[in-house]
Simulated scan of single mutants.
Amino acid sequence: MKIPVLENFMFDEPSVWITITTVVTLISTVYLGFSEMIGNHLQYSKFADVKPSTTQGTKLSSRTGFLILYTPAFLAGLVSFFVFPGGGIRFLLLKFAVTFHFFKRDLEVLFLHKYSGGMILGSTILISIFYLSAAASMIVVHYLSLGLPDPSIDLKYIGLILFLVGISGNFYHHKLLSKLRTANEKGYKIPHGGLFNLVICPHYLFEIIIFVGMSFISQTPLAFACTFGDSMYLIARSYETRKWYVNKFEDFPKNIKCVIPYVF
């Protein structure tokens, strides 16, 4: 059944199989967020050792793990320029946004981040599959939607602005995190500066904005499903992150929220 209001903002889905893919994407990503909320964390960063060492699986260095997370999605975006040339300005912006986002994350992994923990292989593979499938499916589904009538409300340039804001804010707060430690330090500190004075995970907030920007550029139901699912996961992860800081630091400021300033 079509919802008239949503038709103003989204392309029609080109086949029933795409609709099924959209629904499965939405359910699976929301489930990941629910799992975080009940304590079944994906094991990376400060949650890498939440399970006993005898059951947690193979542990990777953080640098290796994060490269596995982002590189397949980056390559999918890069290859899309050759596999799906043309397609108009909207499709070009989408391919650029997907590719640049994951390329930036790889560069940060290699040259910006300082690491203290590790990553568990199982969690690494799961997140990598999500990012790869999100990147590839957003591009492929949009390609299959070429030729369909555009939504009556065009959001692609608003999406581009949101994407650039998200990329800039995400990088800035990652840079602040990297300055918390010297090269040889491994411990955690309470972050400060920027929006860290208001929320514990502003880098997650800006990643959500990145995905909102990409979904506005694409305006396919699947892109919105990826954005909603990723947002639910990052909101849940930020909630658990704040709990972790509250338990670890007695002087953690009570006014600092999880991910949305003054709200949550």
Results as ranks from 00 to 15, higher is better:
Glu7Phe: 08
Ile3Gln: 06
Lys2His: 13
Pro85Asn: 04
Val140Ser: 01
Asn184Thr: 14
Ser62Val: 09
Ser53Met: 11
His41Asn: 13
Arg63Pro: 09
Thr124Cys: 15
Tyr131Trp: 09
Phe228Cys: 05
Val50Trp: 01
Gly57His: 14
Phe102Cys: 02
Ile217His: 00
Lys175Glu: 13
Ser218Phe: 02
Asn255Tyr: 13
Asp251Ala: 14
Ala97Arg: 00
Leu177Gln: 06
Met119Leu: 15
Thr71His: 00
Thr58Ile: 15
Gly159Ala: 06
Ile68Ala: 11
Gly33Val: 02
Tyr239Ser: 05
Met37Val: 06
Lys104Glu: 12
Val246Gly: 02
Tyr188Val: 05
Thr99Tyr: 02
His142Gln: 11
Lys104Ser: 10
Lys248Ala: 14
Val24Asp: 01
Val16Glu: 11
Ser215Gly: 05
Ala97Lys: 00
Phe252Lys: 05
Gly147Cys: 05
Lys186Met: 10
Lys2Pro: 11
Glu250Tyr: 10
Lys186Cys: 04
Ser116Pro: 01
Leu144Gly: 01
Phe100Asp: 01
Val79Leu: 15
Lys254Ile: 12
Val199Gly: 04
Ile256Arg: 15
Cys226Leu: 03
Ile210Gln: 00
Asp150Phe: 08
Ser61Trp: 12
Ala236Leu: 03
His113Phe: 15
Gly122His: 14
Phe103Trp: 10
Gly118Val: 13
Trp17Gly: 08
Ser238Trp: 03
Ser45Val: 06
Leu121Gln: 12
Phe34His: 11
Thr22Val: 06
Leu69Met: 15
Thr29Ile: 02
Ala135Val: 01
Tyr262Asp: 01
Phe103Cys: 13
Phe196Gly: 07
Ile161Gly: 12
Ala225Gly: 08
Ile153Tyr: 09
Pro253Phe: 07
Phe100Val: 09
Lys179Glu: 15
Gln43Met: 15
Arg105Met: 07
Ser178Val: 11
Ile161Phe: 13
Glu207Cys: 01
Leu6His: 09
Ile68Tyr: 05
Ser15Ile: 03
Leu112Asn: 14
Lys59Val: 15
Phe206Thr: 00
Gln219Asp: 03
Ile208Thr: 00
Phe211Lys: 00
Ala134Leu: 08
Trp17Cys: 07
His41Thr: 09
Met37Asp: 08
Val50Cys: 12
Ile20Lys: 03
Leu205Arg: 01
Leu26Pro: 08
Glu36Asp: 08
Ala225Val: 05
Phe11Thr: 03
Ala73Thr: 09
Gly86Cys: 04
Ser35Gly: 00
Pro202Trp: 01
Gly33Leu: 03
Gly33Pro: 07
Lys156Ala: 00
Thr64Glu: 11
Tyr157Met: 10
Leu155Lys: 03
Gly229Tyr: 03
Pro85Ala: 04
Asn184Gly: 09
Gly88Leu: 03
Phe111Thr: 14
Lys243Tyr: 05
Ile20Glu: 05
Ile235Arg: 01
Ser28Arg: 07
Val165Trp: 02
Met1Ala: 13
Phe264Arg: 02
Ile127Asp: 01
Thr64Trp: 11
Ser28Pro: 02
